[in-house]
Nucleic acid binder design. Structure first.
Lengths: 127, 127
DNA sequence: ATAATATATTCATGAAAACGAATATAAGCA
DNA sequence: TGCTTATATTCGTTTTCATGAATATATTAT
């Protein structure tokens, strides 16, 4: 039972966003999306995870209002609502003693030749 | 059992820092410390929490290398190791739709007349 | 209508985190 | 030395989160 705790509303709001980011899996997802957008099967291919596992984390990021989704036929694309989230991750990387350029490089992902999603292999859609 | 997950080392490091911040209680502590330093009894007074509860969160923040402590006689003072943490919280506040000036104001706490710690009431030590 | 593909959601289980209560430790005072 | 004050730490319990497995839903193709 939570008693004798007086936490201002703002602490809870700030903590909620940071809590959503406090997961290696979700950080990896955000890096994979970067400044563009990515569909679920693209993220599956890039990250090598089970689809259901990925979807659960996407759900958490949507709930935290970090990700925005849009449907295109069968495909659902995700993008980061506010690029400031990437700056936040970058700054945290710096704080954690990591090379922020790694974050910068990852935030601009390129199409992956091994991926068969509409983004990486648009020619497959025409067939 | 964690299987089929390929999380780069950097995601884990970033997430670890954000995980430590993903708690309303610890955000409140950081706000109370701000740019200066604060002793435990000061934080007790300001936040109105049980001492043991507060100490547990201080322990978590020390473990995450966010806080630095120094002992002065019976008193232990805490300061935020890197002011960039405050910038991080401020940016998160902005992202969460909060007024960042609230964070700025809180990051420069003033002595509290109701507090009897050496910082707020140095004259009590002389007695 | 059915099957295939893409993806979300739910539920059960296990692990991690949060919290209360009790206790231990350190420093200063009488 | 013993007491007081300041604070850390440990342990048990509860709550929350993470994950796997199964299943549901939406769209397109046949």
């Amino acid at each position: 039972m939570k008693t004798n705790i007086s936490i201002p509303q703002f602490s809870e709001k700030i903590a909620a966003t940071l809590q959503a980011l406090g997961s290696p899996a979700r950080i990896a997802i955000l890096m994979a999306i970067g400044r563009g957008e990515a569909c679920v099967c693209h993220l599956e291919s890039i990250l090598g995870w089970r689809q259901a596992y990925l979807s659960q984390h996407l759900m958490a990021l949507r709930k935290a209002e970090i990700l925005q989704d849009r449907r295109d036929g069968r495909y659902i694309y995700y993008r980061i609502k506010n690029e400031a989230i990437l700056a936040l991750v970058r700054d945290t990387a710096t704080l954690s003693g990591l090379d922020p350029q790694i974050v910068d490089a990852l935030a601009n992902p390129q199409p992956d030749s091994a991926c068969e999603c509409p983004y990486c292999a648009p020619e497959l859609i025409q067939l």
